[in-house]
Design a protein around this nucleic acid. Structure first.
Lengths: 264, 264
DNA sequence: ACAATAGTGTCTATCAGACATTATCAG
DNA sequence: CTGATAATGTCTGATAGACACTATTGT
């Protein structure tokens, strides 16, 4: 609760001080594979290990504002551009021992961005790299496994409990694709239905039927919006595809369920 | 992030100290209506106003542990009994001005409990009351409205941003009923399908067709599990109903969508 | 011409919703 | 018997998935 509702006589200022940070799981689709933005740690502990980008919440900031600021810093984008990206609070991690130095609770956010150039911002962003998710996470990972991720097989281990956070984030966006218009956040402002379909296929790791996907998407009012301009594009063989923009809708009714009921 | 990944030379101990609390939105179904557990504040600010139960996270506790401890205290149940109740992290509220006295971030949890006796625990629980949700929240509330809830029409205003938290919690459980087995958490250990159906009807505010509901629930493996004992119950007229227990499944595939696509 | 991709049309098994029917209780 | 509730069965319109087919491009 905001105000400690405590028995009268209790000292309301006797609270335990915590540090509060935000951690970001920034996803994008590159070359048909899901990637996540990671930074290399320059300080102990976990020096040299990979971690999710993030940082402290400042004295006059909400966690959401801190997350958006960090997102702009780490991607090297302007605050204005980063402000348009999809950012969503995931959950908060508060295990007393998640940071060996002090008591830190971290509010995790998931961000979805279209395919961006390699991060080349100043300062922190210089250490940031897009990493293929399969190098960090096994697709079949049960998600919120026990505590800090164990050094699994060929995977790159992440600092702190960031492996757990990343697994949770991956689960969440996979589930949200089913009942929200979120997939458009992975696409550039104008996109083809094939590109949109590939977002689903990449995140879910399945193949979808083109015609059926088209029918479903176009039947959902407000999901996408046709661009009337010249209906062509790309220099590849095949019939040119029509372009669409993200529509006004935010949720899908009914949902676009992934094949084989695996929500786990 | 857990560890501040900051430029070398920055002092990692120069973090802003926050107080961290948990707030609980505890729901139950009483007399066919959705109720929420509220406490009356005995201290300023918002003295005498109603608020969600909650309290500080202790030095060696996770937020989840704190939420479970508070749940036990406020409901007057034993830690053991409360440990079996459904408790789920909602999101974290961190507006810098959400508490006028100091910087407090609060991790909100939603708890679902079967119909319990009026809370009569010691201390804090003495101030707790089950309150009909319609006295606090308009069903058509857009949920995460702007900032702290304005003094709406005939509604009881809540302290701090607890009106927003409660609206978010209500949205969440309504949505979760669609794709999870959560509804059984509102029921006693053994329940009839009519009781389970009434949970959906109460939370969604709709009427469902009995036979179709039955068909759908029984067709979902692991949702409910028949109790082989005497298939009777209650002293009311009508054919006695068979009893069921919650099954092993946790998610529903495919989901049980509420009528009239209103997820908003 | 051929391969490749976009888009249209069709068929079918399945499912949700509506509702009739039967079974079993209390009074 | 009457009213109420549980449980079963039936029908129908909508939908998802599979897939054939046409249209338009690059090579």
């Amino acid at each position: 609760m905001s105000a400690p509702r405590v028995p009268d006589g209790y000292d309301p200022s006797a609270f335990t001080p915590f540090a509060v940070t935000v951690d970001l799981a920034v996803f994008t689709v590159r070359h048909g594979r899901l990637h996540v933005l990671l930074v290399e740690r320059g300080l102990e502990p976990y020096r040299g290990a990979w971690a999710l980008p993030g940082g402290f919440v400042l004295p006059r900031e909400s966690a959401g504002q801190a997350a958006r600021r960090e997102l702009a810093e780490e991607t090297g984008l302007s605050e204005r551009t980063a402000g348009a990206l999809h950012l969503e609070q995931l959950r908060t991690y508060s295990d007393p021992d998640r940071d060996p130095r002090m008591r830190v609770v971290s509010v995790a956010y998931a961000a979805l961005v279209p395919d961006l150039p390699e991060p080349r911002g100043g300062g922190d962003a210089a250490l940031a790299r897009w990493t293929d998710l399969s190098r960090v996470l096994r697709p079949g990972t049960p998600g919120p496994s026990g505590s800090t991720a164990p050094p699994a097989d060929g995977l790159v281990p992440l600092a702190f409990d960031h492996g757990d956070i990343l697994a949770d984030a991956y689960d969440r966006i996979g589930a949200k694709l089913e009942y929200s218009c979120l997939a458009t956040a992975f696409c550039p402002p104008e996109f083809t239905l094939a590109e949109l379909r590939q977002v689903y296929e990449t995140v879910w790791g399945v193949e979808l039927d083109g015609p059926n996907f088209r029918r479903k998407v176009l039947a959902t009012p407000g999901f996408v919006q046709a661009v009337d301009g010249p209906p062509r594009r790309t220099g590849a063989p095949g019939k040119p595809a029509a372009l669409y923009r993200a529509g006004a809708a935010t949720t899908l009714h009914p949902p676009l369920l992934r094949p084989e009921g695996r929500t786990a």
